[in-house]
Design a protein around this nucleic acid. Sequence first.
DNA 1: CGAATAGTGTCTGTGAGACATTATATC
DNA 2: GATATAATGTCTCACAGACACTATTCG
Lengths: 228, 228
Amino acid sequence: MTTSVVSVTVDLVLLTIRQGALQALLIRRGIEPYLGKWALPGGFVLPDEDLDEAAARELREETGLDPRTGHFEQLATYGAPGRDPRGRVVTIAYLALLPDLPSPVAGSDAAGAAWRPVDDIEAGDLAFDHDRILADGIERARAKLEYTPLATAFCPPEFTVAELRQVYETVWRTRLDPRNFHRKVTGAEGFVEATGGTVIRERGRPAQLFRRGPAALLHPPLLRSGQV
Amino acid sequence: MTTSVVSVTVDLVLLTIRQGALQALLIRRGIEPYLGKWALPGGFVLPDEDLDEAAARELREETGLDPRTGHFEQLATYGAPGRDPRGRVVTIAYLALLPDLPSPVAGSDAAGAAWRPVDDIEAGDLAFDHDRILADGIERARAKLEYTPLATAFCPPEFTVAELRQVYETVWRTRLDPRNFHRKVTGAEGFVEATGGTVIRERGRPAQLFRRGPAALLHPPLLRSGQV
DNA sequence: CGAATAGTGTCTGTGAGACATTATATC
DNA sequence: GATATAATGTCTCACAGACACTATTCG
């Protein structure tokens, strides 16, 4: 039996909603290969580190965020033989859904880091196979909004129904009926809980504030196929 | 930046339905560590092999099956530092849903291989962290039957609605109403297509034969939460 | 007051689940 | 004939989507 000795990295698809657009955190590479190109943040797994730990450490290093903020999960693993010119590198990609951060890129050690609207990133813009990893992450996020309450991961701890609706509209790139959306969100068991507070964003009637509820799955789900 | 040099393997969660039970293919280990213990089939990734290729090769070696039979997808990656006593081994697990095979374990190179009902496999029965990998695979299969037509992957190329229903009943461990199930399956766009043939399994009215349809997702889905 | 946003109510069509009925085979 | 399985139909309730209407703020 032949063993295959390879390097193992983690790469992060960090998604947030800023300025009404779904955005991903990218870093500008400071070393070869792909020097100067944009790439997903990531790095090598340390010898005594579990994969989740490595991803959480990279998240802290790149954003200063605690992985318990928002949502964090393993996405998929990529290991085509030629994906890194330096040799055999297998990367485990992680997906994080984050609220709009006050200090976007706090403690980044990369040459440069920036949030970029995912619609502005075109095929070939990113180093390695990061185009595909990013696309897979976005698709995972879109699908998960249907059956899980993860849209709340894009929101601050307290949010209004309208803000949650804007998350869905931004991620799915659709328009949703505010009245039906309100009824479905407040009717789905454990999706959101009223905090009792209210807030006025611009003008109009004050909106109730909610926090995320305890449900792990949405019953009934909010389907993209419908028009809500 | 420190690189982490590790070995990379693929492990397979192979699921089928035999004798009315959801069963997984296990091999009895012929070498240390865990000599004599049951484990998931798998092996090292070869130097010039993509991960999917390695998993497909292992599938062929263990079962003689072509990966295009049934359904095949990446499940998740496991890499806790102590999961293999020989050193750092990261494993990418794959999930396959297979029809009941005529020759269960054709060309296996393992000391012994057998289909085992998953309900008979208890915590601690399997080597390494394969208990958890198997559990993750079963849960993935259960969830995917809701929103995708993958139940057909457990069936031969032509099957009856009753056989498809038995797949759902076996995987979900529930009873489904045959009449409502028939209406929902034949009503879901692209789930199944009638071949025109009929067959009599034991006695009773002949059943229509179907093949899998072109749909990748079920609209509307078949939800576990309901009673069908 | 009007404009804007938040939230509730009402109506209609469709699907889920419960279950009756008909169809076609074997014994 | 009886029995078993397949397939269709019927009924009721709940939810989805469309959209009218009320509530509460700012200017």
